[in-house]
Design a protein around this nucleic acid. Structure first.
Lengths: 140, 140
DNA sequence: CGAGTTACTTGACAATCTCAAATATCTCGG
DNA sequence: CCGAGATATTTGAGATTGTCAAGTAACTCG
């Protein structure tokens, strides 16, 4: 039972919850700055790393493929993304960022302030410790 | 520019992004287990700590009060929450969990496994260090 | 008392999400 | 090679979440 967790672990979970809240808030703010919704920003960010089929976007977002159709539709309508045929399989449509989309994706990454402000509180040594603890927590 | 951030900070941000993703996933899963949406689970969780006016729920969720109306409507329709008059101000409606709502909120907290699994990797000492780093990062 | 503010709801609309069904294409056994 | 079944995407219906503007009721204060 979570209610039997020790107070220390409970506090850590509480703190992580706060981090999650701030991160999301910051992400939505950065997306809105570019007139994008959070979902649109996430898809554009994904595609800026590597074009991919609609289905794979759905897997990354953990949602139904039919949902991705609408999100990519809106990004395409704004000229940030385009659908290309997959030469190897005519069923597949590869979503890829346009030059405009790439620019927006980069600007979006740069305006995601979350990192700077909170991490500035920590020294390099502390950041290393934090990195190692997070790595172990995530089992990487 | 975020792109000029040092590699260490970039990695920490990346790791935090992963934590955020897993936490959200886990939260939605736990909510769905009780046939609740994420938003409904968040409101029920809030109210289980302390009944509060609609307006304050909106402030906590950082959304418009009109949005809260619908979410509380659905929780009320399921008998998990009730609206009570505020004796001090007849404009205000206090949302409070029913006994059923409290039970569900507790079950929800207990089924939120996020904490256990990842934190189990860390010793008590390490958890203390993590707590202190997160506290400082969040400026509490 | 009355003007202005505050709390909540309602209605219209957009975006996100799910599910079921339709279409086009691929794959593989026979 | 052909046809059955699987796969990729889209479409359409419907629920939920979110915004904004307008409406109603109740409070506050000069």
């Amino acid at each position: 039972m979570a209610s039997r967790m020790d107070p220390l672990s409970l506090e850590v979970v509480e703190l992580i919850g706060t981090v999650v809240g701030r991160y999301y808030e910051e992400y939505e703010r950065a997306a809105a700055e570019h007139s994008l919704t959070g979902a649109q920003a996430r898809v554009l960010g994904l595609l800026s790393l590597e074009p991919m089929p609609m289905r794979r976007i759905a897997q990354k977002l953990k949602c139904e493929p039919s949902n991705v159709t609408g999100i990519v539709d809106r990004l395409e309508a704004r000229g940030l993304v385009e659908r290309r045929p997959d030469p190897a399989d005519r069923r597949v449509k590869l979503a890829a960022p346009t030059p405009d989309g790439l620019t927006t994706a980069t600007a979006l990454r740069d305006s995601l302030n979350f990192a700077r402000e909170p991490l500035a509180e920590l020294s390099a040594d502390e950041r290393r410790v934090l990195r190692d603890l997070l790595r172990r927590m995530l089992g990487s």
